[in-house]
Amino acid sequence: MLEVDLHKQLRDFSLDLNLRVNPGEILVLMGENGAGKSTVLNNISGLLKPDTGSITLSGRQFFDSMNAINLPVEDRNIGYVLQNPAVFPHLTVRENIAYGLKTRHKAKDLVDTRVNHWMMVMNIEELARVKAGNLSGGQKQKVALARAFAIEPDLLMLDEPFTALDKESRQSVQEAVRTCVSDLQIPCLVVTHRVADALDIGERVYLLNRGVNHWEGRPSDMPAAGMQLPM
């Protein structure tokens, strides 16, 4: 289980967050632009350091201000797709997906198996040898997701992962996310501003407003009014 209890002073407001995500559960983080959604993910990943609080994943302490614990990003084993999918443009699709496995010095057979598997799931096998810099926005998002899945992370965090996908691709990619989360039994946090995505993929929604929890519940129970969320 992911347990987050953090406080961070931002420029315009302070982020005060308390959330739990169960293994195999997809929590959708929603809110208006600038509500602090991406900042939450950056704090959990370790790219940003909270002022105070604690972050624990299945008993592993990522961060604990009381005991001065702050696990480096590279040791957290998080599959994190940032808002800019940041596929490495100078590497091929295959090399991109294999990147995290190679940094962990995994055996070549395992690297090949995982890379082939996720290329097949994402339906990007024919792009294996294409330089990622030449891909379309949707293809880049698929590669970034496959790269995050391939490391078999302990936690999956996706920041606006479906924006560049067409309707058909979106459904298959969302299915892949559900499968990965369910197979690995890991918690998953998805940031999106699209209510449709929350309804499609979310098991629980956490509405964020200026750094604090505004509402929490099932996607189908989401308040129609109160927060202006674009469809």
């Binding site: 998080i78 940032l82 800019n84 940041a86 995290g100 940094t103």
Partner: peptide, 17 residues
Amino acid sequence: DPAYEHTARTLGASPLR
């Protein structure tokens, strides 16, 4: 764009790598 280095970090890469 820092997103490239941030992503590499989350994939376990050391600063030198």
